[in-house]
Amino acid sequence: MYQLAVFCVLLALGYGFGRFAETRHYQSITRREKLFAELPTLSLRSAGEDEEAVFKTQFVSANVVISVDYFKRVAAALRGFFGGNVQAYESLVDRARREAVLRVKESCPGASHILNVRIETSSIHKGRGNGVGSVEVFAYGTAVYNAPD
């Protein structure tokens, strides 16, 4: 009985706070993406730039770990029973990837573009039965500056 009550409270808390955190995070992501819209991130190895114009290059990287909330975890477990798209986790990895790329951009505001952007996703708690559910996204690339910062 208590088990059920605790479960419902956790579920409601998870849904409420998780939803709140997600909305806020998305707001911040869209705002910052607009801010850095002019800094191109490319998955190309070369942007065909004029080699003479390059002032310096810099290796840039950033990471973010985002936790699932209780509601998402339970919803995903239910999904695991039936199979299909795990909707609850789609937004989680989407947020994490965009956040990581944004952090890369934020670490080199004066660059003209970032080459060869790679995004690596890992679950740091894989195979750890009752562990903390979270997803880590690590993004890295080569920032090219055409002028001093």
């Binding site: 009985m1 059920l4 605790v6 479960f7 477990a77 695991g80 029973f81 039965g129």
Partner: peptide, 15 residues
């Protein structure tokens, strides 16, 4: 078998 032990789902189904 169905719910697994760590999903938290057993909390609803057990009662």
């Amino acid at each position: 078998a169905v719910l697994g032990s760590d999903s938290g789902l057993d909390a609803i189904f057990a009662p």
